[in-house]
Nucleic acid binder design. Sequence first.
DNA 1: ACCCTATATATTGCACCACGATATATCGGT
DNA 2: ACCGATATATCGTGGTGCAATATATAGGGT
Lengths: 113, 113
Amino acid sequence: MLPKVLIAASVKPIMLAILAQDGESYGYEIIQRIHALSGGKIQWTAGTLYPVLHRLETEGLVESMWRKPDGERRRKYYRLTPQGEAAMSTEKQQWMDVNAVLVQLWGPDLALR
Amino acid sequence: MLPKVLIAASVKPIMLAILAQDGESYGYEIIQRIHALSGGKIQWTAGTLYPVLHRLETEGLVESMWRKPDGERRRKYYRLTPQGEAAMSTEKQQWMDVNAVLVQLWGPDLALR
DNA sequence: ACCCTATATATTGCACCACGATATATCGGT
DNA sequence: ACCGATATATCGTGGTGCAATATATAGGGT
């Protein structure tokens, strides 16, 4: 089980990155996607995901539309806005800044072998 | 400015890693250390650091002792316990698990150039 | 018809956390 | 005497994950 704070820090960048890669998706699918992507290590629940999606929409980083594909159930599809793409770059840079510090502390394993 | 949630997620692994590398240190010094290590990007304040240090001690991951080096002020020095070293390994693994997902999503830039 | 499972979204309440603000104390330099 | 740097401590506020709960619908088995 991953610590709550680590989930909290990664949920936004991961969500933005998934939407950037997939073009558009919806809540339930995103939950399965991250589960598969992480090899089962990250298991978001509905109580985690939907509030985040709504927050991102309020911030103008994603936009949503209800749609009902033929023979399928109606779903609320999300896609990135231009601001969302910009936000993803920022989040990526911030994550990498912190990651660089940790890599530095954990040792020069990368350069040396 | 880094998001609060990212600070929250990184403060524990970074603190444990600093103590693992330095052997022992104290609050004020750790603040300067992380500032330098991150090139000024991470700026912990006393209000951030001391509660974390106390929490780590309560969890048994660090131990502390007041000491007064000759000609210097008294300081509360911290060092890792064996449980602290184990916790650092766990934190490292968890961070890398999440990082792997992000790297995967951000693209195969590393392997290709 | 009935039930069960999977799919799909939404909300509430609790526990936890960073951190600005604030307080206290000590040292060296001017 | 004063000031800035050093050094530790705590409180209040705002923000967060997430279990629990609620609601709705499609498909398959009996």
